[in-house]
Amino acid sequence: MGNSSATVSMSLVQSDSESEAVPLQVMVISSIVLGIYSIVGTLGNGLVILAFCMYRQVRTSAHAFIVSIGVSDILITGLQYPTGIASMIIGAPSLGEAMCPVLGAALFFSIYVSLFSVLLIAFNRYTHITKCPTTYQKLFSPFKSLLWVLLSWVVSGLLVAPGFLGYGEFGWGKHRKCGMTDDNPYNAHYESNIFAVSYLLVFCLVAGIYLRIYFFVKDSVVTMAEANLNLANREQYISSRVIKQTKHMFIIFFVFTSTSAPFVLLHSIDSHYPFLPSEVAFALIGMYCLNHVMNPFVYAWKLPVFRRAFKAIIRCRRQLPFQAGAGVN
């Protein structure tokens, strides 16, 4: 009986010490910020998914990959953030111990889906701009686009699998969240060798694809200009719509990279050799979480068809109003 009491007392001390790992001011600020992120991100990503389902003009192959990002983002903003806030406040997994590994795995899974969707968008744009229409239709017909999306989800699932096979472990962490546990010695290796390497590989591929697009457009301008030396403005030989498509999708990639790369790269190093001050780590996490909230607003800003669709949904219109000169993005 005495041993049992001592065990309970020891558990309470350990629980209190773990609670102190998250300062009160950090908990309050995190809860407020994540609460705002959750509401805004869920509404925004919900609009993206609803626009794709409701309006035929939005249902293009390139937009299918944007919707894939929206689905993965809403899993984070609508599920991860609210349960994360509750877990932080109560000091235990809000959905129970059994669901904690699932939530941790779902977090990484959602991030991988967003990552590969960005790659598919770049590949889609490259094929659309540099290849003939027949080739584009073969690779990105509606059915093929669905297969591409399913493939990205399957690969994301395979990248999560090592966390259930001993190379890392998903579950409850000391910072009151469901992610990677603190006990498995391979957690740092998973975050650096699988998570960070996957991110770097996709980043290099996407950056290379956009560079190829840039040089293709540049070479096309030069070729057309040499055939028409008597005209002053060489850029008029490249379709402005093609150039806008390239710029819009590159901006989406740039926003994704600028908000996520600092956290992914620095955290992968910090997991092996801790060097980041807690304030810096907190700021990086906040910026990374913002990525899942910003995407719908980037689409509305740079893609007119989404902007029109959002307005139509807010006005409860079942049909997207016709707009002369509005091309497919």
Rank of each mutant, 00 (worst) to 15 (best):
L47N: 05
L43N: 01
A21K: 15
Y55P: 01
I74G: 01
L24E: 12
D73I: 03
M27P: 00
L43K: 06
S68K: 03
G70N: 09
L47V: 08
V48S: 06
E20Y: 13
G70L: 12
L34V: 01
Q25F: 15
Q57A: 14
I74T: 06
G44W: 04
S38T: 04
L50E: 08
S61Q: 10
I32S: 03
G44V: 10
Q25A: 11
S38F: 01
A62R: 10
P23C: 11
P23E: 08
G41S: 05
L50S: 10
M54K: 15
V28M: 11
V26L: 13
A64F: 11
I66G: 02
M27Y: 05
V58D: 04
C53D: 03
V58E: 03
L75V: 09
S38Y: 01
I69H: 05
S61R: 05
A21V: 12
I69L: 07
L43Q: 04
Q25W: 15
S68P: 00
I36V: 15
L79P: 00
L47T: 06
I36Y: 08
A51M: 07
Q57S: 12
A62P: 00
L24K: 11
V58W: 03
L79D: 01
N45Q: 06
T60A: 05
A64T: 09
I49P: 00
G41H: 03
L24Q: 11
G70T: 11
E20T: 09
G78F: 03
V22M: 14
L34G: 01
V48L: 10
V22T: 13
I39K: 07
D73V: 02
M27T: 12
L24G: 02
S30C: 08
Y55A: 03
S31W: 07
I36N: 03
S72I: 02
P23I: 13
I76H: 04
V71D: 00
G35K: 08
P23Y: 12
V40A: 12
I69Y: 10
P23H: 09
G70D: 08
I74R: 02
G78D: 07
R59T: 02
L34H: 11
D16N: 12
M54D: 01
L34M: 15
V67P: 00
F52Q: 06
I36C: 11
R59I: 02
A62V: 14
I32G: 02
Y37G: 02
V48M: 08
M27D: 07
I29P: 00
G46V: 10
V71M: 13
D16Y: 14
V71I: 15
G46F: 10
N45A: 07
V40L: 15
S38D: 02
Y55W: 05
I49Q: 03
R56G: 01
I29S: 13
I76T: 11
S61G: 10
L43V: 15
R56W: 06
I49W: 03
D16W: 14
F65A: 09
I49L: 12
S17P: 00
G35Q: 09
V67R: 10
G44K: 04
S72F: 04
G44T: 06
V22N: 09
D73C: 15
V71A: 09
V71W: 13
G35A: 07
L75H: 06
L50I: 06
T42S: 14
E18G: 01
S30N: 13
I36T: 10
V26S: 12
A64D: 02
A51R: 09
D73P: 00
I32M: 08
R56K: 14
G78E: 05
T42D: 04
Q80V: 11
D16Q: 14
I39E: 05
